[in-house]
Amino acid sequence: MTENILVTGGTGALGRHVVDRLGAAGHPARVLSRTRGSHIGNLGTGEGLTAALDGVGTVVHLASDPRDPSVDVEGTRRLVAAASPGTHLLYISIVGVEGHPYSYYRRKYEAERVVEESGLPYTVLRTTQFHNLVLFALETLAKAPVMPVPGGTRLQPVEVEEVAERLVELALGAPAGRVPDMGGPEIVSVAGLARTYLRVTGRRRPVVSLPLPGRVAAAFRGDAHLAPDHPDGRGTFADFVSATSGRSGYGSKAPGR
């Protein structure tokens, strides 16, 4: 048995799979969560971190909240300050966050810098958007009689369970710094993803691509969030929708990606 592993955000869409896979591999993990899990704690305030990190040799840092700026950057600083010297800190980030005008992406990049400058041995994995986030967005857009989507924007969605598989490999390995990005198997326009969603779920809506103004929309049209050289994922978005379309509200708790 290796040293204890702590997973922050271990009850989330990604965290649940990471915790399950670690357990299946013989490495049961502690779970840090604000509401449930083996250790109740709050990265925004620092509450519970000392107890959760006691005896921990590896931290898989997944906790994130696009609605709460205190979690990603200040929370990562608190986590670093509370961790013992030599703790392996594994951080999940997003492809293309450097120089991106989207405020949440800027915070993710700043958190990356906190990890890199922490003095702790670390690993950073960037991925593209998760399938369930894309599904959540499309479910929301499909509530209107006409389905509006951002024109000129492409995505490379990846299966969250495959990301969990990669994270477990990294958590059980040696610190590796910034590792290669991980993307889904296909790069598809948002309009194309919308049509896939409608086809697989048997719904009918006109899909209308709209040119969105502003720097954030322009950045997404520029494809910086894609990883064309790393189509590592196996499951496609159509596969995901087919497997989950019978589960009501599956995408209702999408991560901030």
Results as ranks from 00 to 15, higher is better:
P228H: 06
G249W: 08
V115E: 09
F130Y: 15
A13W: 02
T45F: 15
S189A: 08
L212R: 02
V216L: 01
T58K: 14
E159D: 15
S70H: 09
T45S: 15
V80F: 12
G235E: 06
A13C: 04
L198D: 13
P175I: 11
F237I: 10
G48S: 11
E3R: 15
E159H: 15
V31S: 11
A176E: 04
L53D: 10
G183R: 01
A52P: 11
A224E: 13
P180Y: 01
E98G: 00
R204K: 05
S248G: 06
S248N: 04
G99R: 07
G99M: 05
A63K: 10
N132K: 01
V163D: 02
V97H: 08
T87F: 03
G233V: 04
L22G: 13
R21M: 09
P255G: 13
A171G: 10
P148V: 15
G214N: 04
R204N: 00
D65A: 14
A142Y: 12
P66F: 09
L6Y: 13
P231D: 08
S84F: 03
D20C: 01
Y122N: 08
P101Y: 02
I5H: 14
L22N: 14
P101Q: 02
L79D: 12
L53Q: 10
Y250A: 13
A29Y: 10
V216K: 03
A176N: 04
A227H: 12
Y105G: 00
L172F: 08
R234L: 08
F136N: 12
A144V: 13
Y109T: 00
G23P: 07
V168N: 04
E161H: 14
E162D: 06
G99S: 06
L210C: 00
V134C: 02
L155W: 07
L32P: 12
A243F: 00
R204Y: 05
F220L: 14
N4W: 07
V19I: 06
P175D: 07
P211E: 05
V73P: 12
A176G: 08
T50W: 01
P228N: 13
L79K: 11
D68N: 15
G37A: 11
V190R: 02
R107M: 02
E165I: 02
A191P: 05
M182C: 00
V7K: 10
S248F: 13
G251V: 08
G152H: 15
D232L: 08
V207Y: 04
E116H: 09
D223K: 11
G251P: 13
V146L: 15
P28E: 01
R166H: 13
